[in-house]
Amino acid sequence: MESNNTPIPLFEIRDLHVRYGDMAVLHGINTDMPAREVTAILGPSGCGKSTLLRVLNRTLKLTPMARVSGGTVKYQGENLLSHPLGEQQIRKRIGIVQQRPLPFPMSIRDNVMFGADYHNKTRAAEKDEQVHTYLDKVGLWEEVKDRLKSPGSMLSIGQQQRLCIARSLANRPEVLLMDEPCSALDPDSTAKIEDLILKLKDEIAIVIVTHNLAQARRVSSNCLFFLNGTIAEQGKTAGVLNNPAHPSVQAIVMGREG
């Protein structure tokens, strides 16, 4: 019965070290991210949040000089960094929405289907349907439905950000890593994305980096608070944000909200 109550964590990270050349960026990350929950990653700029997401989606090696210099990461119980499914499949299953929205040089429609088309060839009618579905999910459909053929780069930054979220979702990931997905969005669109996260969390696991403590409270139940390349505080979001033990985290949380 014991094993039924404690399912395998989504990610088990043990003593993870990452370096960019000679500079240690993550030193000794230890955490279990629960499956079927939203995990929020908080922490000041430059403390290694994006770096951790790159490790999880296996795109770290695309950064020159970057490497995992120690530790292990398991994804659903299997070693992530030498997973039998291979790098491409892992990247498909563990999707990421990067910090800076970068539409590809093609139409809005093709942007949405870029990854999805590669992974499973779909018929044209089906494709239209999917484009509609995913643009609708990110609240972009009404704004772009009349210009699906115009280039993605013509959109505003906030629209581009939602386009990139749609692109990652259309790829049908099992996990979605989101790096500050609302940083360029107005409150209205932010609310839409938060709603989307709450809707998605029953289907896929979500890890979201955010600088917005209130947002972390609204969407996440698990929380990691990063400081200088280590996790200073972790646990239930309410616990971490209401009574943190670490003095620096305390200072940041109080300073920002009180």
Binding site: L62, R91, L102, F104, Y118, S168
Partner: peptide, 27 residues
């Protein structure tokens, strides 16, 4: 072409050819 495009493309799990032909060449 910024390295970020490479990361954004490949992070979707596509192969190098797809990235080179559909994004890098076009850009």
């Amino acid at each position: 072409v910024s390295r970020e495009y490479r990361e954004a493309s490949l992070s979707l799990g596509i192969d190098h050819t797809e990235w080179i032909v559909r994004v890098l060449f076009v850009k």
